[in-house]
């Protein structure tokens, strides 16, 4: 090895650039927008990035990271968000106390996870197809429940303040959505990289057959993973509903592609290309900063999507090309 050190030094350099493509991209967009739009660096704006762009997507992407870590994917996170939102709104309208309604909302989201768990761990359908099916069935169920997709509004008056707390409240000056996101991220990080459950999930993603042959109840862990994913996504449903005080059928799907994007952008941070919570969080941060910065820099709104897409594309290209090079040596 020491003898080869010299000859591989150039690939090593490019590889370390590839490894840090995500951090470099974050730093670059940060500097770029600070220079293009002076308002970008203001405390109020940075806080709004965190609360409006970052918090909710970060929670969804964290959930997605669990599914991808286990070697799968969950296309029905949006469905879990919607079901949670619908259950929450319905219970509040029925006059239930807010804490109970929130619990009901979480349960509504978990129903989606249970359905996925039966399909994936029970029957053994590949996660992509199973959750794609769930997405379609879920959309139809929502339209049936709402007379063809009508939003369910909460009356402007008579909604208890407690309802708005999740979306608009603050605890010691910190907005609740941000606080919840931080808790979810910290919990997910501990769960994924510091617990037995997380180790099994990661091992499943690397080589499921080895997990099975090690005598671990693989199916039980797989089921738990998808239930957990929908449970985390359900939290977003509660916050979203509390923020906008309305349930719009199938609105949760808006998070889906960005959550997948952030999770896979995050994999470029790991030397082995594995999904990881810090990477996911940085990925979400990158997407949020780009979305906000492009808005502030006054670029044509329609070019913003092109810019975001190109950026994601280049981070992925660098990350994957680098990983390919690493696999070759």
């Amino acid at each position: 090895m020491p003898a080869r050190q010299l000859s591989v030094s150039i690939p090593t350099v490019t590889r370390s650039i590839g490894r840090h493509a995500l951090i470099a991209a974050l730093a670059a967009v940060f500097v770029l927008f600070a220079w293009l739009a002076p308002a970008f660096l203001s405390g109020a704006n940075l806080l709004s990035v965190l609360v409006n762009n970052f918090a909710l997507l970060a929670i969804v992407a964290t959930a997605m990271t669990f599914a991808v870590s286990a070697g799968g994917i969950d296309l029905s996170v949006g469905t879990a968000i919607d079901f949670a939102s619908f259950a929450f709104v319905s219970l509040v309208l029925a006059g239930q106390p807010i804490p109970l309604a929130a619990l009901g909302g979480l349960a509504g989201g978990v129903v989606v996870g249970l359905f996925n768990a039966v399909l994936i761990a029970g029957i053994g359908i590949s996660p992509f197809l199973a959750t794609l099916g769930t997405l379609f069935v879920g959309r139809s169920v929502q339209q049936l429940l709402t007379n063809g997709g009508n939003p369910v509004y909460l009356p402007p008056t008579g909604v208890p303040d407690a309802f708005r707390f999740l979306g608009h409240g603050t605890i010691v000056g910190i907005p609740v959505p941000l606080l919840v996101a931080a808790l979810v991220i910290a919990g997910a990080w501990l769960g994924l990289s510091r617990s037995r459950f997380g180790r099994v999930v990661l091992a499943t993603g690397i080589q499921a057959s080895v997990v099975r042959y090690s005598g671990i109840a693989l199916r039980r862990y797989t089921a738990a993973t998808y239930i957990l994913v929908s449970g985390i996504a359900a939290v977003v449903g509660l916050i979203l509903t509390s923020t906008v005080t309305v349930y719009i059928p199938s609105s949760g799907n808006a998070f889906l592609l960005n959550a997948i994007g952030a999770t896979f952008i995050g994999t470029t941070l790991s030397p082995h290309g594995r999904p990881n919570i810090p990477g996911t969080v940085l990925g979400v941060l990158l997407l949020s900063i780009v979305a906000n910065g492009l808005l502030l820099s006054g670029l044509n709104f329609y070019w913003q999507q092109v810019g975001t897409g190109l950026l994601i594309f280049s981070v992925l290209a660098i990350g994957f090309a680098n990983r390919k090079a690493a696999a070759r040596t």
Binding site: G71, I120, G124, I125, G205, R323
Partner: peptide, 11 residues
């Protein structure tokens, strides 16, 4: 390149 082993089907 397959990231991790997404390739592993559930069953």
């Amino acid at each position: 390149y397959i990231p991790g082993s997404l390739a592993e089907p559930a069953a």
